[in-house]
Design a protein around this nucleic acid. Sequence first.
DNA 1: TTTATATCCTACCTCTTAACTAGGAATATG
DNA 2: CATATTCCTAGTTAAGAGGTAGGATATAAA
Lengths: 140, 140
Amino acid sequence: MKFSTRSEYGLRAMVVLAGIEDATPVSLRQIASLEQISEQYLEQIFMDLKKAELVQSIRGAYGGYLLARDASEISIRQILEVLEGPIFHCECLGKDGEQPSCSFKEEPCIVQVVWRRLQDGMDHILEGMNLRDLQQGKYL
Amino acid sequence: MKFSTRSEYGLRAMVVLAGIEDATPVSLRQIASLEQISEQYLEQIFMDLKKAELVQSIRGAYGGYLLARDASEISIRQILEVLEGPIFHCECLGKDGEQPSCSFKEEPCIVQVVWRRLQDGMDHILEGMNLRDLQQGKYL
DNA sequence: TTTATATCCTACCTCTTAACTAGGAATATG
DNA sequence: CATATTCCTAGTTAAGAGGTAGGATATAAA
């Protein structure tokens, strides 16, 4: 199990945006150069961040991206949920009428409870961190 | 991010072993049939479980696998660590003399702390669950 | 108006790896 | 010896991560 580079790059970029004082848009070229990331790859990541309304964009020259709301109002969970997608499967219980493949026929299945607990635990940790505090190094 | 089927299959198989009363070895054929898993794939998983000394094996006819120690002495963390391998990278800090690729030059890097907290949180959750209690449905 | 700089959008590519599959050697039982 | 099992290595395949490429659209400044 590991997080994708999407999460790492996207989170790093969001921290960069959180470090901008006034509402100056920052171009992806700047971020990509600063963080040593492919600019076009970053583009795709930001399309998702925008769709999730975590950032807003300004097109054209001197355009770029800025946070859609105050950094303190954006939790790390919200960011990673967008970048990583929902997590933790348990396919042993057959879906929509299929035969269950595992021997724990009950719902919830015994093994599934492990994934569920992990998911809840991670959500709790990530929801407890916001972008402002992260950028200011308060979690170090 | 998601867990591999190795983790799911391996964990399910370990729960099966935990459900055996006496010290009767269970063959992979039985487990594979019970859990609807490829027997040869399960073999590879069990080679790792054995190397980690979580199970012991008995070769030959009427052989099979059994837990290497009492189920209550085996944490879910130990199992998943073997099956999933260590987790959570942060490659933005250059390793062994490389140039760091991210803009947070400090060690620990600002983003890395997120992965670290997640890792610690997951370890804590998984360490708090043991195979005996899982098998007996105490976490449901 | 023209040029430079951006975001927007879609399609494609390429390599890695997860998830198996295959087949045989070694070992134990009866 | 026949059968059942673990042990071990190598090969296969499909999907997805991690990008690239190229062009359309929008905006600011000269």
